[in-house]
Amino acid sequence: MIRIIAILVGLGFTGVVMLAFVTGAWTAATEGMGEETAEHVFHEEAKGPEGGFSFDGPLGNWDYAQLQRGYQVYREVCAACHSLKYVAFRDLAQIGYTEGQVKALAAEWVVPGIDPDTGETTTRPGLPTDYFPSPYENNIAAAAANNNAIPPDLSLMTKARHGGTDYVYSLLTGYEPLPAELREEFPEFETPEGLHFNPYFANLNLAMAPPLTADGQVTYAEGNPDPTIRQMAADVSAFLYWTAEPKLEQRRQTGLWFLVFMLFATILAWFSKKQIWSAVKPKRED
């Protein structure tokens, strides 16, 4: 009895889903599989800088000089619009700055404070314990200042997008005029006033104006590579990977120790198991 009911229920579900299949297939056959869109055809996969990043691969690690250059790019370019709210100035000690340098770097920033005498909101120089301040009072101010597009917080940007650091690098270096082929294939596609064409952005039209516009926009200290647009983009992408995953180094080091130990313990366990079973596992004799 139960099996008859089961067969009926099974056929019921199968029938309904096959009905859906048939109608779907009919639509696909008569109307095609949906139209190609410019977002589909002209969207490009993120590519990292030539030679990749120092932290690529399972054992890669930070290049402190690059992270410090990236910090400089963030401070002088990105910070005008983008916050970094989960990172504190004290964290900069992790990318090779001394305690004194961290204090000095923090003091270059202006953070919100409270006047100790009147209790009014005011500003003061940053302390190492402060977090990076937001350039805007709140989201409404951010939207109002940016043509209604709120600049996202960058703390986790390289973990919050497919492609991570490569995506950030591609986006920063990927601005270009609307390609002629696209204009031909999709005459309706347009980049509205105030947006900017970028094939690495999901819908190809990005609210952010190209932030890195000229080689030498940021002046690097002696002994660093030339601040070309590509170099600056790579440096700030690396810096933003550090802000998103500050424990990378500790994680990989601990992981390596743990992996070696696990391999050793597992091999021991294998021999121990073999040893224990040897008494009851005579050769099969047939």
Partner: peptide, 22 residues
């Protein structure tokens, strides 16, 4: 959620119920 994935999941779903219940 677009073709051909929807049609494929319909076939797989149909088999799933057929397998256990029929």
């Amino acid at each position: 959620a677009e073709e051909p994935y929807i049609m494929l999941s319909q076939i797989a779903t149909a088999y799933y119920f057929l397998h256990f219940l029929v």
